[in-house]
């Protein structure tokens, strides 16, 4: 073997490093493309929710996609404790109004003031206890995020319905929205917040 092995190794070393960096260039270009679009995603209108998917898996609906104004996603990013601002509007505290008590001991017309996070379920540790056979012990949750009230199902057995549709992910509540849990129907009221 009479080839200049040392030279081959030296060239090989730099070729190897060059190949590594070529790969990195490709990879970073991909990453920046993704990141760049992310940055604009908060400002530009979020693409409409894709039409019913071929996969019947329960897919979460993004908070920002439920017709929220474009600034929604950004306002969440604005500071670490997004909940404070919502609570400061004392005069306009949103609430739930029982429309149909169903089998529960709730009373029609009863008003439940919403806290920063209101848990709903059959168990006693919930903020709103609904003693209904079709209500799970930890059934659902309404919480504040970026000035919005968000309804989330907590893997309940019989599901949470929002304006007649069973929810699979987070839903932003609007004044007058109807929520159905078991046999109970609740209305969401938030005058002055829009």
């Amino acid at each position: 073997m009479d080839m200049p092995l040392g030279l081959i190794l030296l060239i090989g070393k730099f070729a190897f490093l060059a190949a590594l960096y070529a790969f990195l260039t490709w990879a970073f270009r991909g990453l920046f493309r993704q990141m760049g679009l992310e940055a604009s995603a908060g400002v530009a209108p979020v693409p409409p929710q894709p039409a019913p998917r071929p996969v019947p898996a329960p897919v979460a609906h993004p908070v920002a996609s439920a017709g929220a104004p474009p600034a929604t996603a950004r306002s969440g990013a604005a500071d670490g404790s997004p909940l404070v601002s919502a609570i400061s509007h004392e005069h306009a505290r949103p609430r739930l109004v029982v429309q149909e008590p169903g089998q529960s001991r709730l009373l029609a017309g009863q008003v439940i003031e919403l806290t920063a996070a209101l848990t709903i379920g059959r168990a006693d540790d919930n903020g709103l206890v609904i003693d209904d056979r079709f209500c799970s012990s930890h059934h659902a949750l309404i919480f504040t995020h970026g000035g919005e009230r968000i309804l989330r199902d907590r893997d309940s057995t019989n599901g949470t319905y929002h304006n007649g549709r069973r929810i699979t992910g987070d839903v932003v509540l609007r004044d007058g929205d109807r929520i159905n849990i078991g046999t109970v129907a609740l209305d969401y009221r938030a005058p002055g917040i829009e």
Binding site: A73, G76, A77, H145, I150, D170
Partner: peptide
């Protein structure tokens, strides 16, 4: 995007 996005970014 979820409510955790800002924290994730930080």
């Amino acid at each position: 995007m979820t409510e955790y996005a800002p924290q994730i970014r930080r």
